[in-house]
């Protein structure tokens, strides 16, 4: 288990290029996050849990689908930690697993209401499935 968590941590580092140890736990990411109340793990917890290798827990959390990729945390982090990039890497890891798809084409017809822009569908496919 320990080995696996180290491996996953390395993989997140390779995907993001972000050294989460730079975090000084100021909470500015969580202070800026527009999805804070929707998330089980808040942005500052994401960063800390990656440092501690608790990747599986993050992958299993619906929090990974609540990040809006608005980059407010990336913009304001005083340590260059880029929490949004970390969240996306975890989401990628979850989606790349078998059965990890969060959004299926079957859902589309029901969501289309005549005004939905292509962009919304394209980004949903890009963001929520492999």
């Amino acid at each position: 288990m320990h080995n696996n968590s180290d491996k996953q941590k390395d993989q997140v580092f390779r995907m993001t290029g972000v050294d989460t140890r730079k975090c000084m736990k100021c909470g500015k990411c969580s202070a800026s996050c527009p999805s804070f109340n929707e998330m089980q793990y808040r942005p500052h917890q994401f960063v800390d849990m990656v440092t501690k290798g608790r990747i599986e827990e993050l992958m299993a959390s619906p929090s990974i689908y609540h990040c809006l990729s608005c980059f407010a945390c990336v913009e304001r982090c005083p340590r260059g930690v880029e929490p949004a990039v970390v969240v996306e890497a975890i989401r990628n890891l979850a989606e790349r697993k078998q059965g990890g798809t969060y959004f299926s084409p079957d859902e589309v017809p029901e969501l289309i209401d005549g005004t939905v822009p292509q962009q919304a569908l394209v980004s949903a496919f890009r963001k929520y499935r492999k």
Binding site: R14, T16, G17, V85, A89, N92, V122, S123, R126, K127
Partner: peptide, 13 residues
């Protein structure tokens, strides 16, 4: 072609 609408943040994408 469509740009994909969201920037892939992971470096391995």
């Amino acid at each position: 072609q469509c740009c994909g609408a969201c920037y892939p943040q992971s470096k391995d994408e």
